[in-house]
Amino acid sequence: MAATTGASVSINSRLTARASSLKLAALSNQGRSTLSFRLRPQTARLRVSCAAKSETVEKVCQIVKKQLALPNDTAVTGESTFVSLGADSLDTVEIVMGLEEEFGISVEEDSAQSILTVQDAADLIEKLKEKDA
């Protein structure tokens, strides 16, 4: 695991903070298998330079829960992948549309396809909002 982290850090120094925050998230969230997934350098390359604010992540979680009609006690965190929450590709399209509306943004098709986790979505939203402002 440490080796993987090291590899992605060397690609981009901005990742250092992200990688360590991921570790923390994984520690507080034991048993999640998403960690190795998130640390792939390939995913890392799509990262936005700044981590999304926690309120954005929170809001995205709410919307995802609503769209997938998940019970309230389901744990949805930034690291949750849509697939692990039981979403298929149609659901993912719905989620992205829901997010677009909620945040008043417009997500291009290419970027919509690369959204796999709540965190991905939140990062993209922040990026788009920044562009608008």
Binding site: S89, V96, Q113, S114
Partner: peptide, 17 residues
């Protein structure tokens, strides 16, 4: 990084969108 979608799947999803 997403699940690999075939061209036709992409077309369907894009139509849905």
């Amino acid at each position: 990084s997403g699940p690999r979608l075939s061209g036709i799947q992409k077309q369907v999803l894009s139509l849905y969108r």
